Amino acid sequence: MASEKTKKIWMTIGIGLGIIFITAFLTSQIIFPLIFRTPKNVEVPNVVGLSLPMAKLRLTQLGLHIVVRDSVWSETGQPNTILDQDPQPGKKIKPESTVYVKVNRGPMKVGVPYLVGLNYSDAYYTLKSAGLEAVIADSLYSDNYPRNTIVRSSPPQGTKVEKGAKVRLYISKGPKPFIEETVIWDSLLM
């Protein structure tokens, strides 16, 4: 008799739990969406070829997030543009989902800019903005270039080098000082 009673208790508990699970499922999948109007899935737009800020704007307007998964050197296309995306355009995803993108870092090699005649600070910032590093190699006397201007660079203008490469700068000391020989002889005789 005790086992009959135990079976009834367990059966009642099982049926009760089943009813609770079915009610929870129906509530979460049918009733709540009807009451709270959960948004429908969003179609992923094509952001390949767009700049990173434009892609971010387009995706956030649709309620999606963007994460840069990778950035690669590329000789084609504009720097800071989207090369690939996941999920692909046209796929339906839930709002607040994430779209992963691959961004173009630009070309790995850049041309050494024209530096001759620039003062050192202008040459330094020109190289820095090109992704290159300035190194003073030597200073030379020059009748053609004023003091603290670039006489030449190595590698020369237009040479393709990897980003981050060092460009050696040769800076003018100005014209070579003129010393009269008589002044030297006079000073030696005294």
Rank of each mutant, 00 (worst) to 15 (best):
residue 42 V to K: 10
residue 42 V to S: 12
residue 43 E to Y: 10
residue 44 V to F: 03
residue 48 V to C: 02
residue 49 G to A: 12
residue 51 S to P: 05
residue 52 L to E: 00
residue 52 L to R: 00
residue 53 P to G: 02
residue 54 M to L: 10
residue 56 K to I: 00
residue 57 L to C: 03
residue 57 L to Q: 15
residue 58 R to H: 10
residue 61 Q to N: 10
residue 62 L to R: 09
residue 62 L to H: 11
residue 64 L to F: 07
residue 66 I to K: 00
residue 67 V to H: 06
residue 67 V to T: 03
residue 67 V to G: 01
residue 68 V to G: 12
residue 69 R to F: 00
residue 70 D to V: 00
residue 70 D to Q: 11
residue 73 W to G: 01
residue 73 W to D: 12
residue 74 S to A: 07
residue 74 S to N: 15
residue 76 T to I: 10
residue 77 G to T: 02
residue 77 G to W: 00
residue 81 T to K: 02
residue 85 Q to A: 01
residue 91 K to M: 12
residue 91 K to H: 08
residue 91 K to Y: 03
residue 91 K to G: 03
residue 92 K to N: 14
residue 92 K to I: 14
residue 93 I to P: 10
residue 93 I to H: 06
residue 93 I to T: 12
residue 93 I to K: 06
residue 94 K to T: 09
residue 94 K to Y: 13
residue 95 P to I: 08
residue 98 T to S: 05
residue 99 V to P: 07
residue 102 K to M: 00
residue 103 V to N: 00
residue 106 G to I: 08
residue 109 K to Y: 03
residue 110 V to K: 10
residue 111 G to F: 06
residue 113 P to M: 11
residue 116 V to F: 09
residue 118 L to V: 13
residue 120 Y to N: 07
residue 121 S to V: 06
residue 122 D to T: 15
residue 122 D to V: 14
residue 123 A to P: 14
residue 123 A to V: 11
residue 124 Y to T: 07
residue 124 Y to I: 08
residue 125 Y to M: 15
residue 126 T to P: 13
residue 126 T to I: 09
residue 130 A to V: 11
residue 132 L to G: 07
residue 132 L to M: 07
residue 134 A to I: 05
residue 138 D to E: 11
residue 139 S to F: 06
residue 139 S to T: 11
residue 141 Y to S: 04
residue 141 Y to F: 13
residue 142 S to W: 08
residue 142 S to C: 11
residue 144 N to E: 13
residue 145 Y to D: 04
residue 145 Y to E: 09
residue 147 R to T: 04
residue 148 N to W: 15
residue 149 T to G: 01
residue 150 I to N: 08
residue 151 V to I: 15
residue 151 V to Q: 04
residue 151 V to T: 08
residue 152 R to V: 01
residue 154 S to W: 07
residue 155 P to T: 13
residue 156 P to F: 06
residue 156 P to L: 04
residue 156 P to T: 04
residue 159 T to L: 14
residue 159 T to I: 15
residue 161 V to H: 04
residue 163 K to V: 14
residue 165 A to F: 14
residue 165 A to G: 10
residue 166 K to Y: 14
residue 167 V to M: 09
residue 167 V to H: 05
residue 169 L to W: 11
residue 169 L to T: 05
